[in-house]
Amino acid sequence: MDAYKQIFVAGSAAPLLSQPDPLRRKGFDLNLVVDRITAEAVDVLSFTLRAADGAALPAWRPGAHLDVFLPSGTQRQYSLCGDPNDVSGYRIAVRRIANGQGGSVEMHRLRAGDALRVRGPRNAFTFVDAPSYLFLAGGIGITPILPMVKAAGPRGHLIYLGRSRATMPFLNELPGAEIRADDETGIPDIADLIARAEPGAAVYVCGPPPVAAAAERTMFAGNPTGSLHTERFSAPPVTDGREFRIRLARTGQTVRVGAGETALTAIQRAIPDVVYSCRQGFCGTCKTRVLGGAVDHRDRTLPAAERDDHMLTCVSRAADDALVLDL
């Protein structure tokens, strides 16, 4: 899971990106072993990971994820979807995306006994206490939601969306869920589903960008006392962007960043193997030293001490017309 979280609170006109308290910035560096691989749905495998030395693993709470360092060196985030009370192992699940850049193909090549280095658990999708919950999960978006549903018990109701039952993992673990497969019930009306939340409910949404966007547009029209918590599996679109230039100091090359693209996307045209991970301003992998120009910071990750001379290229932009980066 490459995660992007937003919290909307009653009466607010804009989202508040998740901040300090539940987020472990660095997590624990752990050497784990793939203990078991299970086919959960079409193109979805779950991986049970255990400590290489058999020791108990650090505790976690619903909504947490692991930073996984794949054999190629690629770093990706995947939600923990097992039992938080079982510290003997972690479970994550990955849908294979053909020709994707998210690391899923490489994950699906792993075998039992393979070693994996991970960092975590970290949590940017906090499970809050609320009188009631409405969970809306789309496809592989069930992974962070699954432990929350179990923790909520009778206070929660899950609506699980997918193309077909064959593509929806963990159905056997969700006997009380409302299953809405497109090939059975048609394309869902997200506004109608969100409207079913009780007054004051915490609404959790995780799935494709159109699902989260529809929830954000409609939540407070019918439930002004509730809270909306969303997590995306893809980068948010660029808003209020304008064109600027980046000079790569080590080569002298200049790249142009379009108004609707990220600095990272433009840099990749010149440096295809430039390092990045979440593409959402969360993980800090793409942090780059700024040698010239002012930055329009659009993340909540960089500490104040680094904001004068560093940026996250996946979301931040030039405040003026140009930047010089140590690349």
Rank of each mutant, 00 (worst) to 15 (best):
M148F: 08
T143H: 01
R122P: 12
A115M: 13
H108Q: 06
R119D: 01
A124V: 14
L110G: 05
F125R: 03
I140L: 15
M107P: 00
V128D: 11
M107D: 00
D114Y: 09
R109K: 13
R117V: 10
R111T: 14
L134W: 11
S132R: 13
D129G: 13
R117C: 04
L136P: 13
V118D: 00
A115L: 14
G113I: 04
P131F: 07
R122D: 06
Y133F: 15
G139T: 03
F127E: 04
G113Q: 05
F125Y: 15
G120I: 05
F135R: 01
A112V: 05
S132Q: 12
A151Y: 10
L146V: 02
V118G: 05
D114E: 05
N123G: 07
Y133W: 09
R119F: 04
G139V: 03
R122C: 15
I142K: 07
M148G: 08
V128G: 00
P147H: 00
V128F: 07
R117Y: 04
I145P: 10
A130T: 06
Y133M: 09
N123E: 06
A130W: 04
V149N: 03
L134A: 13
V128A: 14
L136C: 12
I140V: 15
A130D: 04
G120T: 01
A124R: 14
P144R: 02
F127H: 09
V149G: 05
R117S: 12
T143F: 00
F127C: 04
F127A: 05
G120A: 01
I142S: 08
M107H: 02
N123F: 12
L116C: 11
D129E: 15
L116F: 10
L134D: 12
V118K: 07
A151C: 09
G141F: 01
A151E: 14
G139P: 02
L134Q: 11
G113S: 05
L146P: 03
P144D: 02
V149T: 08
G138M: 07
G138C: 07
L110A: 07
S132C: 11
A151D: 08
M107A: 02
Y133R: 08
I142H: 09
M148K: 08
A152C: 11
A152D: 11
